[in-house]
Computed example of a mutant assay.
Amino acid sequence: MLVSEITPDLVRHLGVLARIQLSDGEVERLTGQLDAIVDNIAKVSEVATPDVAATSHPIALENIFRSDVPGDLLTPAQVLQNAPDSADGRFRVTAILGEEQ
């Protein structure tokens, strides 16, 4: 097993790099947490072999796509029949840009 190299000084340095001001309590807590993370990564690295394929998900996933076939289309009149306001075969909406645009 790999001996951890996470020290409070390293955590303070990482805080400076990330521009995060850490209190002494936060440094102590993060030192332990980062130490545990590094140890777990080392354990995974020990058992990872070329015989085992890398996976992003434990269960094989497959996208199911439907055929892209156009169906029954609405006429312009059907589209606009419930519109609060329309003109010239288009939706009419309140202007959001100033007159200069």
Rank of each mutant, 00 (worst) to 15 (best):
M1Y: 13
L2Q: 05
L2S: 05
E5W: 04
E5A: 12
I6M: 06
I6Q: 01
T7Y: 08
P8R: 05
L10I: 10
L10H: 05
L10T: 02
V11Q: 01
R12H: 09
L14Q: 11
G15P: 11
L17A: 14
L17W: 00
R19Q: 03
R19D: 13
I20D: 05
L22C: 06
S23P: 08
D24Y: 05
D24G: 09
G25F: 12
V27H: 00
E28S: 02
E28Y: 06
R29H: 07
L30A: 03
G32D: 14
G32E: 13
G32P: 01
Q33R: 08
Q33Y: 02
L34W: 12
L34P: 06
L34Y: 13
D35F: 08
D35A: 14
D35I: 06
A36Y: 06
A36T: 11
A36D: 11
A36Q: 15
V38N: 03
D39H: 10
N40V: 07
I41Q: 03
I41H: 06
I41T: 05
A42T: 04
A42P: 05
A42E: 08
K43Y: 10
E46L: 15
V47E: 04
V47Q: 08
V47D: 02
T49A: 06
P50A: 03
D51I: 12
V52R: 07
T55M: 10
T55H: 02
S56I: 15
P58E: 03
P58Q: 01
I59H: 07
I59C: 09
N63L: 13
N63V: 10
R66C: 09
R66D: 10
P70D: 01
P70M: 00
G71D: 09
G71R: 08
D72G: 03
L74P: 04
T75H: 01
P76F: 11
P76Y: 04
P76L: 05
Q78E: 15
Q78K: 06
V79M: 11
V79E: 00
L80A: 03
N82S: 13
A83R: 02
A83N: 06
P84M: 10
S86N: 12
S86A: 14
A87P: 02
D88M: 05
G89T: 00
G89V: 03
R90Q: 09
R90S: 09
F91G: 10
